[in-house]
Design a binder for these strands. Structure first.
Length: 256
DNA sequence: ATGCCTCAGCTCCTGAGA
């Protein structure tokens, strides 16, 4: 089965592209981020017409996340239990026996800012919760827009972007701490093209010059690691007219 | 260049994204 994550940067604008992509890539699960719409605007019917069940957690203007699945998703959780948050950033559910967490991690804007502090607190809350989730659900996938690079390999200009947002040691510490709970970066389990990124700035021909960052990740739990067969960044949708600035990431799992 | 695009909305500018 394939599971994917995609920051669509406005589902209203990107809906036709998402539907196209799903027809070519009929993944079992798609986690979307940055819907930028209220719940009443969510295009449930369009996804159902393609054979998907949908769960969503929207918000006006910013954030908003959703899970699409071919088979029904159960035990839905919205946002991080125990972490008070007025932003719609997390949606979790169980699909085919796998606990799937789709997340839009805070951007953080700039080290030292209030938004950066919020990001750090959010990361702590996420880690506490995922620790508990892993005990309840050993087969777990945590995927989404993390807004954090693991290391220099994930950064087109590691020198110029050193210690800037997405690349600070503090953010990377939290990402490693999350992995240390018993998760694995699917991307790095496989040989990947050099300079593999999942986001490119709209400005300055970022995509054409491959000036990007790898900030969208699919982490799989210890129990799932043996069955991970592939992890691919699909750059094709980034070549569309009016693309999202992020590309989808797809992981393939064999049967346990 | 505190810019460069893109998106939403208190929409013809601004805040935020990353």
């Amino acid at each position: 089965m394939k599971l994917a994550t995609w920051n669509v940067n406005s589902l209203s604008v990107r809906l036709p592209q998402v539907l196209d992509w799903l027809q070519t890539n009929p993944v079992e699960v798609l986690a979307m981020q940055e819907l930028k719409m209220t719940d009443d605007k969510f295009p449930k019917d369009a996804f159902e017409a393609l054979g998907y069940h949908a769960q969503w957690f929207g918000q006006k203007t910013y954030n908003g996340v959703a899970l699409l699945s071919r088979s029904p998703t159960t035990d839905i959780v919205k946002n991080i239990p125990g972490f008070d948050d007025d932003m719609a950033r997390v949606i979790a559910g169980t699909v085919e026996g796998i606990r799937v967490v789709g997340a839009y991690f805070p951007n953080g804007q700039e080290p030292g800012s209030d938004k950066f502090e919020y990001k750090m607190e959010w990361l702590k809350g996420m880690r506490q919760w995922i620790k508990a989730e892993l005990e309840l659900h050993p087969k777990l996938v945590l995927m989404g827009d993390y807004n954090i690079t693991f290391d220099d390999l994930d950064v087109w200009d590691p020198v110029g972007l050193q210690d800037t947002i997405h690349c600070t040691e503090e953010e990377r510490y939290h990402l490693r701490a999350l992995v240390a709970l018993g998760l694995h970066d699917s991307h790095r389990l496989f040989q990947q093209p050099s300079k593999s990124y999942s986001w490119w700035d709209y400005r300055g021909g970022g995509f054409a010059r491959n000036r990007g960052l790898r900030i969208d990740h699919i982490l799989v739990s210890n129990a799932l690691k043996p069955v991970v067969q592939a992890c691919v960044i699909d750059k094709l949708p980034r070549k569309n007219e009016r693309p999202s600035d992020h590309a989808p990431v797809v992981v393939t799992l064999g049967s346990l």
